[in-house]
Design a binder for these strands. Structure first.
Lengths: 202, 202
DNA sequence: CCATTCTCTGAACGGTGTTCAGAGAAAACA
DNA sequence: TGTTTTCTCTGAACACCGTTCAGAGAATGG
């Protein structure tokens, strides 16, 4: 009786279809301009159907936020490896900034929007975020081990500093708080600021 | 004929009343949980009346964002003065972080929310933000002049770096991306990260 | 006292997220 | 096969939202 298996497969396919179309709409129209009805229209089902696969709008956004993290983690993986850890750390920061500027919609989902934060708070943990933070912490640890950073360095603090610096720069840009910088120059300016910071550290 | 003057005064009083009650509601219930109807109820007028004083919801939020900047600019003024510029810069960063943690609602308004950004983009300038950024830039310039920073330092780049670092730390906290840190310790942790950064620079 | 100007109301419009009784198809059982 | 059960899906309905606007009523000016 393969019925149950087929049902499960079809259920997953429907979830994937909803997520795919929702992501398409969100990225092209902006998160606040996409309603459940519009998603329903895009998948050619009635609005009620979506609620048979997701409990509410936030659950869709949380699922998309997980998908964004997969892509993000890959982009950040240039930081892993066995070269000089300081060089990898700097490379990771550059990759972080480029990813955010190239994928502002995904970045918002992961690090700015309120909606996923509600679920993070409710679950009281955030594996996806902490995985990426772990990658960063490991690299910072290696910088301590290799003597690049002083032995008494508190690794979580140093990693948070590094993350905060990158996040601050890109989130100011994404939320339009740098209107004095022409859009075409944003990436370069952020990278300069980042380089200023790492030059001071290095 | 003092009628016109009285009318103008009453008009201003009504605008202030709306802003005051709106701010109260926003800070206590959160921005997305306050509707125009709720504001109308708070001021004891019908919803339509608000639109005689503000063209739409975004205009209210933009006006509140200006009020937030007044308070913020004052808090940041510890950075001005005539002591050692580097010391003032560090003090300014500390004030920035403390202000944001103590007034997350105001901070969101100024640096995170989308709504004021629309108006900033429409007006294509942002005096209030640039005033505060100017305060920072001036202090960085004085660090260059006093020899604390190398003469070839690009001041806007260094200032942006400093801003980004502070903004990144607090906005991660405000948007709940640091669930691994207990709320009571957030401020201390952010300050440690900030100190790690300035120690590297100083 | 009348005409004008101004303020304010509240119903209405077209949207929103979400729920749920009931229709109809598919599967399981006899 | 026919019958019963299980499952999927619909779409109207609910309670909200931001915003508009004809018209009521008061204040002002002549």
């Amino acid at each position: 009786m393969g019925t149950t298996e087929r049902r499960e497969r079809e259920r997953k396919e429907m979830r994937d279809l909803i997520l795919e179309k929702a992501m398409e709409l969100f990225l092209s129209e902006g998160y606040e301009n996409v309603s459940m009805r519009k998603i329903a229209e895009a998948i050619e089902y009635s609005p009620g159907t979506i609620y048979l696969y997701f409990s509410d709008r936030d659950e869709i956004i949380f699922a998309l936020h997980l998908m964004a993290f997969q892509k993000f983690y890959k982009a950040l993986s240039v930081m892993a490896g066995d070269g000089d850890p300081w060089e990898r750390l700097v490379k990771g920061g550059g990759a972080y900034i480029r990813f955010a500027i190239a994928n502002p919609g995904l970045y918002e989902l992961m690090f700015i929007m309120n909606s996923p934060a509600k679920t993070i708070k409710a679950k009281d943990k955030w594996e996806e975020g902490l995985n990426s933070f772990g990658l960063l912490s490991d690299t910072v640890q290696e910088c301590v081990d290799s003597g690049k950073f002083p032995a008494e360095t508190d690794v979580p603090t140093a990693a948070l500093y590094f993350w905060g610096m990158c996040h601050g720069l890109v989130s100011l840009a994404i939320r339009n708080r740098l209107p004095m910088i022409p859009k075409s120059q944003i990436r370069g300016v952020l990278e300069s600021a980042f380089n200023f910071g790492v030059a001071k550290m290095g």
